[in-house]
């Protein structure tokens, strides 16, 4: 097929499916912890990191990773120590970081176009370094998730009992949120800061409706995410549509079908 003759498309498929698998499996935990807005908030923070990276001539990838990680630790700290609702903490971070990013962008208009790529994602922007970083971080995430799967599940299901049984819930909460921020900051370049949240959350929500246990939910979520990315990249290539948005619209279609299907059965 013609589409596979372009190395940038091959890279997009490779990077896209890896991100889909990791983002959706992490997303499963985020959703059941009722922390769905986390990915959106972190994506905007990582956008701020990118803007600051451009401004200070640091590598935008690294500065966005650093910003997102630190912000995620602050969010988790506030969640554990304050009586504030998690979703209000998140919306403060979301709008705050976006506001700062806008100010930085308007103060120095030279990098507007490249920042635009980070907002909406761009498959042509993937280079070999990105592939290496994504594979490496993907491997780290996969191993961490595999090793701690039961513990993360216990904390999501019943944090108090998990803690009472001697599990280090504080550490594991920080670990999980760190994984989420790493995945988000490496994927915004491809999927886009505005869309990565959908990629994490929607597959999980669809999968949850069709499975009676957590293991199957994660499997389904990963499959749904990967199918959407692959189909979305095909469609965006042949119809000349932006890839990130196409993927999210596909996910929304799956979601709508799943809701209709689910409602009809009762």
């Amino acid at each position: 097929m013609e589409i596979f003759q372009y190395t940038f498309m091959l890279k997009a498929f490779l990077a896209g499916t890896m991100i889909a698998a990791i983002a959706s499996s992490l997303g499963m935990f985020v959703v059941v912890k009722r922390f769905s807005m986390l990915s959106d908030a972190l994506a905007h923070i990582s956008l701020l990191g990118v803007a600051i990276g451009f401004l200070t001539a640091l590598s935008p990838s690294y500065s966005s990773l650093a910003f997102t990680l630190v912000a995620s630790w602050i969010i988790e700290y506030l969640r554990q120590h304050n009586k504030l609702y998690s979703d209000s903490i998140l919306s403060i971070f979301l709008s705050g970081s976006l506001a700062l990013a806008i100010i930085i962008v308007s103060a120095s208009s030279s990098f507007n176009t490249s920042l635009f790529d980070y907002l909406f994602g761009s498959i042509v922007a993937i280079d070999d370094d990105d592939i290496v970083i994504i594979s490496l971080l993907g491997l780290i995430c996969a191993v961490t998730l595999y090793v701690n799967f039961q513990r993360f599940l216990y904390i999501a299901f019943d944090e108090e009992s998990a803690k009472a049984s001697g599990i280090n819930t504080t550490f594991l909460n920080y670990l999980l949120i760190s994984l989420v921020s790493v995945v988000i900051s490496v994927s915004i370049k491809i999927v886009g800061a505005l869309l990565i949240g959908a990629m994490m959350v929607i597959p999980a929500i669809i999968a949850m409706q069709f499975s009676k246990n957590f293991k199957n939910s994660v499997t389904y979520a990963i499959l749904i995410a990967m199918v959407s990315v692959i189909a979305g990249l095909f469609i965006s290539y042949y119809a000349s549509l932006p890839s990130g948005a196409t993927i999210v619209v596909l996910l929304l279609c799956f979601f709508t079908v799943s809701i209709l299907f689910k409602t009809k059965r009762y």
Partner: peptide
């Protein structure tokens, strides 16, 4: 809505 089975 938590998708978890008795066994799990």
């Amino acid at each position: 809505n938590f998708p978890i089975s008795v066994h799990e």
